[in-house]
Simulated assay, not measured.
Amino acid sequence: MNIKTVKAGDVKNNKYHFIGAVFIILNYLRHRFFRYKTPRAFSVNEIERSIDYDFKVVDSWIEYLRFYSKDEKPLTKKVVLELGPGPDFGAGLILLALGAKKYIALDVNKLAFSSPVKFYEKLFERLKERYTNCNIEHLKETLSKCYKNEYAEINYIIDKSFAISKIKEKVDVVFSQAAFEHFTDVEKTFIELSNVVNQGGVLVALIDLKTHTSWIRDRDPLNIYRYCDWFWNTFKFKGSPNRVRVFEYKDMLEKKGWVDVKVEPVAVVEEEYLKKVKPRLNKKFRNMDSSEMKTLGFLLMARKK
């Protein structure tokens, strides 16, 4: 599996500590007064880019799922759950085109109705080109029923407390793309997942551990780990990074009875940057092993026992 090494450039600890703190406060104020509206770094009106993104995400999920399950057709007749689907149902429609029985999407904010009609028109064209045997008319009907809140192969659940217990049917596969790092209570999420996932069901989650705010993330990707809990908790908001690290995800899953838990780094920071920054991190992160703190993104895979 390819691992990307992120180069951060010159390290300016004092400057980045101050600027990062300002960004944290501004983000807190922005989300408090304007709420969460932009789950991606680009607009939903960038049609081709959005569609390319959805295909790229699903392709990576399938690659990882095949790698983990050793099954060439791991979606056939499976009920799939996506945690945090974002601003469209592109991934869900692609999964259905690939043979999934049903797609369930759970989110805190009602974002997936925000994409323009043109997005789906182009997506259906791309689906027909790529999967010539898929039933486009049925997918269109399924999407229409979803928008009307009618029962269909797409089940969109919005819950402010992100209660997985709202899901009333058993799930075979759980996908998540850069969402777990935003969950307020990861342990609770794993407990509730354990109740809805079938025995033998699989979790595939890509988790982004680096600083999310633009400008500072490219220069100081570990910026969010500089600050003490008091400061961080004072200005955190629903959806802000939870600062849970790789080993904690693994430990929580195993304690909840999941097996074959695998963690695969997909992005790491360069050693030179880590050496300069680590002494200036908050104590609990500073005391973690360097191999743990160098990971900026990883793939989490596990099977429900």
Rank of each mutant, 00 (worst) to 15 (best):
Y131L: 10
K37S: 11
F113I: 10
A179Y: 02
K236F: 04
Q177C: 05
Y147K: 14
P241G: 02
Y151H: 11
E82G: 04
V80G: 01
L65A: 06
V204M: 06
D71H: 00
P85A: 13
N242D: 13
I47N: 01
K122R: 14
L143Y: 12
N233K: 15
Y249V: 01
L139E: 06
K304M: 13
P221S: 09
I191Q: 14
G201K: 04
L83T: 01
K148N: 08
A178C: 06
D159I: 05
V277A: 11
S290M: 13
Y147Q: 10
I104N: 09
F23I: 08
S50N: 10
K255Q: 14
F119E: 11
P74W: 09
V186Y: 10
R243P: 11
S161Q: 15
K188T: 07
V186R: 00
E187N: 14
K255Y: 00
L111G: 04
E48A: 09
L123G: 05
T213R: 05
R40P: 00
L65D: 09
Y28C: 15
L96K: 05
H31G: 03
W232N: 12
E46H: 06
K7M: 08
E272G: 00
V79S: 11
E72A: 08
F231I: 07
Y225D: 07
H17A: 12
D208E: 14
K256G: 02
N149S: 12
K73W: 03
W215V: 15
S114Y: 01
N195R: 12
S60R: 14
D54L: 02
F89R: 04
G84A: 07
V174C: 07
G297P: 05
K102T: 07
S115F: 10
Q177P: 01
K128D: 14
K278G: 00
V58F: 08
I19N: 08
C146R: 05
L123D: 05
F33E: 07
I158Y: 09
K118C: 03
S214V: 08
L106I: 11
A8W: 01
R226L: 13
K145T: 08
C134S: 06
K12Q: 13
M293Q: 06
K170I: 01
D10P: 02
V173I: 15
L193A: 09
D185L: 10
D52A: 01
F237G: 01
T189M: 15
K256M: 10
D260G: 02
R280T: 09
G201A: 12
M301P: 03
V79Q: 04
R130G: 06
A41W: 07
R49F: 10
G239L: 12
I191L: 14
R280G: 01
K238E: 15
V11Q: 05
N27A: 05
S114K: 13
K210R: 15
D251T: 14
E82F: 03
T142K: 00
I104P: 04
Y68T: 08
K73H: 11
N282Y: 13
V108T: 14
